[in-house]
Structures are given as structure tokens and as C-alpha cells.
Amino acid sequence: MTLFFAAASVVAMAAPAEAREIWTKQEANAWYDQQPWLVGANYNPATAINQLDMWQAETFDPATIDKELGWAADLGMNTMRVYLHNLLWENDPEGLKQRMDQFLTIAAKHGIRPMFVLFDSCWDPHPVAGAQHPPIPGVHNSGWVQAPGAERLADKSQHHKLEAYVKDVVGRFANDDRVLAWDVWNEPNNDGGGNYAPTPNKKQMVAGLLDDVFEWARSADPTQPLTSGLWTGEDWHRMEKRDAVEKIQLAESDVMSFHDYNWPEQFERRAQQMLSYGRPVLCTEYMARGNGSTFDGSLPIAKRLNIAMYNWGFVDGESQTRLPWDSWKKPYTYDEPTIWFHDVLHTDGTPYRQAEVDLIKRLTAAPKGVVPPTPTQPAVIATD
């Protein structure tokens, strides 16, 4: 309790009086023009079941992080999307920021600039800090937790803690060149998934809070862009077709972002719709082999369109995301799936599929906007 009020007081004194403006299209594109082609993964070390496990002092694992980010750099990856959690800050604000700084030092050694995710609407709606349960055998992402979680989301009297968390964390790293961007809320209008009971009125509550989260983050005056990505539905280029949450995402994001776990035809359609807003576009989740989303299907399209790409999963580990979504209904406790759903490397660093690793290396090594030729595909150079 003392830690919370002390940190909240620091935030109140340090935060600017007003939030900075949303970047103009020109400002957003000028920032993006200074970036290499951004390629990475949604990153959680193999030794952690969820974001609490990754960051809490008792389970923070810098040796594994260093090893795995080294493997990522060897593939040509230069960014990672990494999840935080408000409970981490509430229980140990200074410790969280110190470990974030340590993580950034490790990442920078490997030439990787992470995008941090502040909140998340997916999986378990009842997060509890402390020791996390072991993975449920045969089940995809069996320990991932939502942030802020159902109870905190519904209790407006506790939202000042969320505000303090956002302002303090973003404020601490607002001018840190090691940080690429801030994803303020992952899939905010997601019901949750898995076998969990949906949170009543969740979308309405999120819509009432998401605008505030953008404003809190901007009030720290970050030099990095803010975003929150669309992930479901069609006609993304038509604002009138979107729900209340998505309208906030589109209106408040400095750079556009989206998720796509489908065949390359739909990936390109969604990518073009997002590009229609005239801002840089980041695909912050893709690659689910069993669902038709693959490296060879989506990554060359993104390279041609100059869209940043973050596949889901990197090293197979306690999150068990090599298993498909349907494992929540029929756990793979005896037989492995025919193909891995997500993830790129085994725990010893060897590739699940060598051809995928070769493709990533070939594409990341080529100049920005250039798709290297394959035996069946000529080189394509972007002209716009």
C-alpha cells in the first residue's frame, strides 16, 4: 500500500498537465521512415507461463531472455512485442521498472527494440499475482491472464491505480530510445477465450476506459508511438462499421496495428484496409499454421507493403502455444498436433521448420521494400 501511494505521488508531480496530441500522419510516417523493416515475435520466455511469471522478481529469468533474444537476432529479428501487467506495478513498482530496464539492456545488446503492451483482454479474467499455476497438460496458453482483469475493470474506484500504473511506466521510459512503441491494450473487445466465463458488460466497460488509457499514456509525453490493434470483423477501412472500442482504437492510435491469423488473401485485404488510413501499419499478431497463417504466406506480402510483423510465439515453452486453440476443448495430452500452431524454435534453439527460419533470414537481410527472389517468385521492389 505504501509503495502504491508513494509511486502515485511521484506520478502526480512528474506528469505533464496535458496529454500530447495524437501524431499527425506526417509525424507518424516520418517516425516510421527512420525504422528498419520491423520483424519480431510476441515474446514470452520459455520458462514463463504468462506475463506475471515473466516479470515477477522470483521468476524473472535474464539468462533465458539473453539466450533467446540472441537466437532472435540471429534470425534477423529487430523487435519483440512484450506484455506487462498492472498487478506487477501495484505490487512492486520500482522492481518492475528495474527489471524492464534490465530487459531493455539485454534486448539492446541484441539490436532488439521492444513494443510493450500495457493491458490485455485475452484468456483468464481473474489474474492473481504471486506464484502461477503450472501449465495445464495439452492446453494452449493455459496460464495467460487478462489485465486489468474482470474485478478491476468493473470497479471504477480502483481505476486510479490503473492510471498511476500507465503514467509511471510510460513516463519512466518515455524518452528511452530502446523502446520502440506502446500497445496500450491488446484485443480490448475480446470476450476472453478459453473455457472462462465471459465478463458481463465487458465491451461497454472497456469502451469507457480505453480512451482514458490512451490519454494517460499520452500525458507522459512519450517519444514513441501509441497503438491498439483491430483483430476481428471486416471492412476495417470503414469507421462507421466498427464498434465503440474499435472506433477509439482507430481514432487514438499514432500508428495503425492489426492482427490476422488467416490465409494470405485475407491478410493482404486487411493490410490494405489498414494502409488506407495513411499511417504506418504494424501487424502485431499473425502466424497460426493450422489456421492458414504462415511465414511464407504473409511475410513476403508484408515486406512488399512495408508492414511491421510480429508472429505469435518464439520458443516453445510453458505457454504451450505450439498447441492449437481447440486444445481448450480437446487437450492434446497423449498425442502432439500434426503441426505446431505457433512458435518458431524448440527449447534448445533448433528450428521447428528450417525453411521458415531460412525465409525469415532472407527477408530480413534484404533492403527495405525488396522481396528477395525465390525459385518461383521474381524480386519485387515497392514503389510507393
Rank of each mutant, 00 (worst) to 15 (best):
C283H: 03
Y261Q: 13
G313P: 04
L96Y: 06
D176W: 01
Q56D: 01
E252Y: 14
K330S: 12
K368D: 09
E265R: 13
Q56N: 03
E94G: 06
K203V: 10
L359E: 12
G130C: 04
I307S: 09
N141D: 15
R362G: 00
R238E: 14
G349L: 05
V357Q: 00
T2R: 12
F341C: 06
P324G: 07
S257N: 05
T2S: 13
F60N: 08
Y277D: 02
T284M: 06
E68Q: 00
L282H: 03
A28Q: 11
H259M: 02
W144P: 10
A207K: 02
A46W: 01
R152H: 10
F116W: 07
R279N: 09
N195A: 08
D33F: 08
D92I: 11
G233N: 01
Q249C: 12
G111A: 04
D66E: 08
S276W: 07
D254E: 05
T199Y: 06
L69K: 01
L230W: 00
K330E: 14
Q272C: 13
L3V: 13
G297F: 00
G143F: 11
T347S: 15
R362C: 02
C122H: 14
I381Y: 12
T284F: 01
G292K: 14
A154V: 07
M77F: 01
H259Q: 12
P125Q: 03
Q98M: 10
V117P: 02
T24R: 14
A17E: 10
L345C: 02
D260G: 09
I307A: 00
V145T: 11
D33M: 13
Q320G: 04
W340K: 11
A63S: 09
F60G: 00
A365G: 03
A7E: 07
Y83R: 12
Y261T: 07
S142L: 07
R242C: 14
P264V: 03
D254R: 05
A154F: 03
